[in-house]
Amino acid sequence: MTESPALAASAPPRSAAHKKYDFSRKYWVFALPAVIVVLSVIVFPWLFTVFMSVHDWKIGGGMDFVGLGNFRTLVFDDRFRESLLITFYFTVLAVVIPIVLGTLAALVFHREFPFRGILRTIFVMPMMATPVAVALVWKMMFHPQLGVLNYLLSLFGIPPSEWVFSTSTVIPTLVMVEVWHWTPLVMLILLGGLAGMPTEPYESAKIDGANSWQMFRFITLPLLWPYIMIALVIRTIDALKVFDIIFVISEGGPGTASETLNIFLYLQAFQFYKLGYSSAVVVIFFTIIVALSLILLYVRQKTKWNS
């Protein structure tokens, strides 16, 4: 023993089981730099936003404490209420369609077939592509007179659409872009689920004469359900916070027809510089996201996704 008696005395008594180290305190040192960064660029903004949301910030300095005034104004702000409805409309479509198509895609890519690798890579590419870059290409494709999409429709004898240039078609059109973008993520999550699936139920079902629909309905779907739930929560969070594609393609228009919560937030904060007011929007938004994240965590733990 080289330890000094004083140190030995202050140290907690060592347990007889020599193998059992308790280094959990020491391990915190590893996280220290990250803790500092997370506190300053993530946790501090959260707290500061809450602080700002109960104040009225004036351009050129100065602020007044307004309590819940910003929230009260929000409740009666027609534009905010409309953006909630638009966000809800967008989110429902942008969750349901990718889940259905992503399930189909996972079943397709779970099979063995020629060129599977290349085709899967192509299918996954939209998810990775820079959203602004592909949004610009979509915008050119949506051009009412010269866009390639209206030409393709005309080949099938379908009259041209106004895509993002009409209030009635703008949300479904943006949903289409979002579906194109993020169905691959749903596919990857479900493909992970399919990979871990037992083969025995299928073999016995085949012996019992089940057809492929019955096998999907009564074996695959129940086994895949936890993964579908994970995809569902992740999609909901992502759809709620959609920004880039709407900002680039329709800028919230025509009028305010595609002004989702995030676009509303951006305009209030960085166009009108209502920083206190927009912080109140962030607080509401953040509450929704945290609730959904906790649901996600709960679902993940139930499926032991990470192990």
Partner: peptide, 15 residues
């Protein structure tokens, strides 16, 4: 996890 899920835009006002 919550930090991963929070919309990027919401960090921007305080920063």
């Amino acid at each position: 996890l919550i930090a991963r899920m929070t919309p990027a835009l919401s960090y921007l006002i305080p920063l």
